[in-house]
Simulated assay, not measured.
Amino acid sequence: MATDARIRELDARHDKLDHQIVEQMKSPSTDTLAVATLKKQKLKLKEEIEALRRRQ
């Protein structure tokens, strides 16, 4: 059960990062470094989610 809750939490954070990336990209003065940082965070979360799902 705790693993499922953790996966849901990470999924929510992953979705939030995705939204932030989209919003950053809409801006005419896009901060490419900020977008790259958000994408790295998103990838790290995805990898953690996949690892947790494999353990189930």
Rank of each mutant, 00 (worst) to 15 (best):
M1T: 03
A2I: 05
A2D: 09
A2K: 02
A2N: 09
T3C: 15
T3I: 12
T3G: 10
T3L: 15
D4R: 04
D4F: 13
D4C: 06
A5Q: 06
A5P: 01
A5C: 03
R6M: 04
I7Q: 01
I7Y: 01
R8C: 05
R8Y: 06
E9H: 02
L10D: 00
L10F: 04
L10W: 01
R13A: 09
R13C: 07
R13Q: 07
R13T: 03
H14V: 01
H14E: 05
H14K: 10
H14G: 00
H14I: 04
K16R: 05
K16S: 13
L17F: 02
D18N: 14
H19I: 11
H19V: 12
Q20C: 04
Q20E: 15
Q20T: 06
I21C: 01
I21Y: 00
I21N: 01
V22S: 09
E23H: 03
E23F: 11
E23A: 15
E23I: 12
Q24G: 03
M25D: 14
S27V: 08
S27I: 08
S27G: 05
P28M: 05
P28A: 07
P28T: 04
P28F: 08
P28S: 09
D31R: 03
D31F: 01
D31S: 12
T32E: 14
L33Q: 10
L33K: 11
L33Y: 10
A34M: 06
A34I: 03
V35K: 01
V35A: 03
A36K: 14
A36S: 08
A36W: 04
A36Y: 06
T37A: 08
T37H: 07
T37Y: 05
T37M: 07
T37D: 05
L38T: 00
K39A: 14
K39L: 12
K39P: 00
K39E: 12
K40D: 10
K42P: 00
K42A: 03
K42Q: 15
L43Q: 09
L43M: 12
K44P: 04
L45N: 00
L45D: 01
K46S: 13
K46A: 14
K46I: 04
E47N: 12
E47I: 11
E48F: 09
E48R: 13
E48K: 13
E48W: 05
E50H: 13
E50C: 07
E50W: 06
A51S: 12
R53E: 15
R53L: 13
R53N: 10
R53C: 05
R54L: 14
R54N: 12
R54A: 15
R54S: 14
R55C: 04
R55S: 12
R55F: 09
Q56T: 13
Q56H: 10
